[in-house]
Structures are given as C-alpha cells and as structure tokens.
C-alpha cells in the first residue's frame, strides 16, 4: 500500500469534520484538544494514510498539506 501522511495547520482548523467523512482510510478524527479559537481540530490517528489528498481538497480552511511516497521507480532510487 502507498504510504502518505498529512500535516494539519491546527491553528486555523475549525473542526468541521468534512475531511473526516472524505477520508477513504478513516484515519482522521477530531482531537480531544482545542485550538486558540476554541475548535477541536482534526488529527491523523493512524499510519494508514495513503496521501490521496481527498481531505485537503474538501478542507475549507486550506489547512492540510499532504505528503505521499514517490512512485516506485523513484522510490527504488531513493533507497539506494
């Protein structure tokens, strides 16, 4: 499985949960913590993220940066 991860700008996340329902891997959840604005922000809760960018596409706040493992050829080179 392709590996990926995300970084959430928790300061601007408003906890709308649209990314949570858009995530095919069910790896997002609201934190138990609150940000400065009083929102429970979203966080990655598993390493099963594939970096598909669905969460980032629907994120109203443009708060999500997505990372993905490079394509296999590049990956082989990278491992050398």
């Amino acid at each position: 499985m392709i590996r990926g991860t995300i970084k959430v700008d928790t300061k601007i996340c408003k906890g709308c949960e649209l990314c949570i329902i858009a995530c095919p891997q069910d790896v997002l959840a609201l934190s138990v913590n609150f940000n400065e604005k009083g929102y429970r922000y979203v966080e990655l809760i598993s390493s099963a993220c594939t970096g598909c960018i669905n969460c980032a596409l629907v994120c109203p706040e443009a708060a999500i940066t997505v990372y993905r493992e490079p394509k296999p050829v590049k990956k082989a080179q990278a491992k050398v």
């Binding site: 949960e17 109203p60 997505v66």
Partner: peptide
C-alpha cells in the same frame, strides 16, 4: 519511508484565515 509534498495551500491565497463558518 520518505514522502513528498503532493498538496499544499495554494500560494495565491493570502495568509489570512477565513472568516467563514466551519464547513
């Protein structure tokens, strides 16, 4: 495992957080 950035906030947006309601 090394992962590369594939999506980020567009540079054509300012840094101002949206005033819109959540969602």
């Amino acid at each position: 495992i090394e992962v590369e950035q594939v999506y980020r906030r567009p540079e054509t947006l300012t840094d101002v957080p949206y005033h819109y309601c959540p969602g």
